[in-house]
Design a protein around this nucleic acid. Structure first.
Lengths: 218, 218
DNA sequence: AACAAACTGTACCGCATGTTACAGTTTTGA
DNA sequence: TCAAAACTGTAACATGCGGTACAGTTTGTT
């Protein structure tokens, strides 16, 4: 274990950040295995000892990186702002923002590395999952429930409905980009996807509320 | 390059298969970087030279592995058999089978390694994508179009509709397992997911067809 | 039995890895 | 101004990697 303590005060905290930023870029680009401390210091200069002074090991550095990137994921839509919208507008806004964020190169790289390394680093999977898909589902669930209350209808399984909704909006785009073609959709494509899937969800909700009871399975 | 040619005849073809099977297990478990030729021969005995005799390099071995695993993905539902079903039954059968296959540990491991390594090995992403998600979408699209024709209604964007459908069935389960909890859903959960999302799609289709022409509902 | 092809075991090469040690240099703060 | 703290550069370490060489052993075929 490296013994010299790094600087804990304000003025040179930037060194830690410099390392973290460069390491994030490197790890996201190359993956955990292919990224190395030598490549890291080739990028930013300085000494390996400094890196180990701050981060103790490659594994711990990696965990710090993922945590910092996850934290930088923007709130997918301002919760308060969402709550002011009507159902259709809210779903449109949310799904467009969701698509925009999820298909961005940086998020794609993050998802890739989390999915790849979650076996060896269970913490990062948990952190990512809670911050991204789970958080989004919670916000959206609260939103549609509020809409239902305001509109005087009921949603039988709001959480599961939202999970279906995010899936139908994101899944195909995401998988295509993860597997075969990383080009994100254009704004026009995003709009179309959002509109189609919003319509689909509204159709389903209106059937349920019109029919009073759900058209139970045969 | 290793020069001694391996056995091309029938009796000892099993050696190649033995290597391929063990390598598949190893690579799926550990990922490309962490799997090594030494670990491979520790598992099956024999000599590195034999491995290189058959597969020339680790990279080529890896590509062979992925190809062979992708080929082993079962046809997600017998196409002909699907075509005989009514819309609801077909969607139920397809989504249950889809969930069963996609959430299996083996497919999960495959998806993980493909997503992780598709940058360095673009071929494997393509092979997987075409064989799994794309193929399924094509079969399902053909199915719902046939149902529409038989039922006398129209589906505006069949392909996109199917993409939404597979997304709403799979996405959340898959991501949960990829990121945080690899436990596959129970048969009961699979049935519920399939039923809920089938109802959702049917609701959407009946709205669209009602809006268009004669109210066709089952 | 005998010959060739396939296979094995071991040792080796060059190289990259994570990590540590350490002596020297810069920066910081009082 | 000056010591302490932070940082740098270089070198070294043990280890494991992909890949090769090669001499010896097993196996299949005739």
């Amino acid at each position: 274990m490296y013994s010299k303590k790094p600087n804990p005060n304000q003025t040179t905290v930037s060194k830690r950040e410099t390392i973290l930023d460069a390491a994030a870029e490197l790890f996201l680009k190359e993956g955990y295995g292919a990224a190395s401390i030598n490549k890291l210091i080739d990028r930013i200069g300085g000494s390996k000892a400094t890196v180990y002074g701050y981060f103790y090991s490659k594994e711990r550095l990696f965990e710090s990186i993922v945590e910092s990137i996850v934290e930088e994921i923007p709130d997918f839509i301002n919760g308060a702002q969402l709550m002011d919208l009507e159902l259709r507008e809210g779903l449109m806004a949310a799904s467009q923002r969701l698509l925009k964020i999820a298909t961005s190169p940086r998020h794609l790289a993050l998802a890739r590395i989390v999915i790849a390394e979650t076996d060896r680093f269970p913490e990062i999977g948990k952190i990512y999952y809670e911050r991204a898909p789970q958080h989004i589902c919670e916000v959206l669930t609260a939103f549609i429930q509020q809409c239902a209350m305001r509109g005087g209808f009921e949603i039988a399984h709001p959480r599961e409905t939202v999970e279906s909704f995010t899936g139908m909006v994101l899944h195909h785009q995401l998988f295509r980009q993860l597997c075969v073609n990383p080009t994100p959709p254009t704004d026009r494509e995003i709009h179309q996807l959002a509109a189609r899937n919003t319509n689909m969800l509204l159709a389903m909700l209106s059937i349920k509320s019109n029919a009073g009871k759900d058209p139970k399975r045969k």
